[in-house]
């Protein structure tokens, strides 16, 4: 909704709409749904299906997995033949994938998960927020350090002091 759809402007302003083109986002989305649908459907075959009268644990997931596969397949189909794509804004342009942000933000979350128990909340927050902060390449190291310290203090205040969650400040690896 946030992307303006340029109403009233006849097609042609956008280079991708001038020719009969493949709606890449539909094709990719459809393919994803097919893969996940098949995954669930095949997984469901491993459980007791039962009958329509007495459905087993596999029955409903099998049906839904098949439906998802079909929906995905029709998305791929419409994506391959669709001419007019003014309606969809989400173009897949491989160039502008924010790889740095994806890698660093995901890493920050994973590091938190892996380190919270052995390290405790203070050290792990320092690492997590720093890794997250540098995900924006415009953030300088000095700013990142400031953000890190500020957020760590804020989070400890909110979660440990105010909400009194039982999160050890230092974990067993650090003598906590």
């Amino acid at each position: 909704m946030s992307t303006p759809a340029a109403p009233g402007v006849p097609g042609g302003d956008d280079s991708t709409t001038t020719h009969r083109s493949i709606a890449l986002d539909d094709v990719v989305a459809g393919a994803l749904f097919v893969v996940m649908g098949l995954g669930f459907a095949i997984g469901a075959l491993g459980y007791d299906l039962g009958t329509a009268f007495k459905m087993g644990p596999g029955y409903v997931p099998l049906v839904l997995g098949a439906v998802l596969t079909l929906l995905g397949a029709s998305l791929v189909g419409t994506g391959l033949i669709r001419r007019d794509r003014s309606e969809d804004e989400a173009d897949v342009a491989p160039g502008d994938v924010p790889w740095r942000a994806i890698v660093l933000i995901t890493a920050a979350v994973l590091i938190f998960g892996a380190g919270i128990e052995p390290l405790g909340i203070v050290p792990i927050l320092l690492v997590t927020t720093f890794v997250a902060a540098i995900a924006d390449r415009r953030t300088t190291l000095r700013d990142a350090a400031l953000i890190t310290v500020g957020l760590t203090v804020l989070c400890v205040l909110v979660f440990v002091v105010l909400l009194q969650l039982r999160l050890p400040l230092l974990g067993p690896w650090l003598g906590g």
């Binding site: 927020t129 953000i147 957020l151 969650l165």
Partner: peptide, 13 residues
């Protein structure tokens, strides 16, 4: 750029 590290920290904790 200050906000999103905070979101990461709050979500995970």
């Amino acid at each position: 750029r200050v906000l999103f590290p905070a979101i990461v920290a709050f979500s995970t904790i």
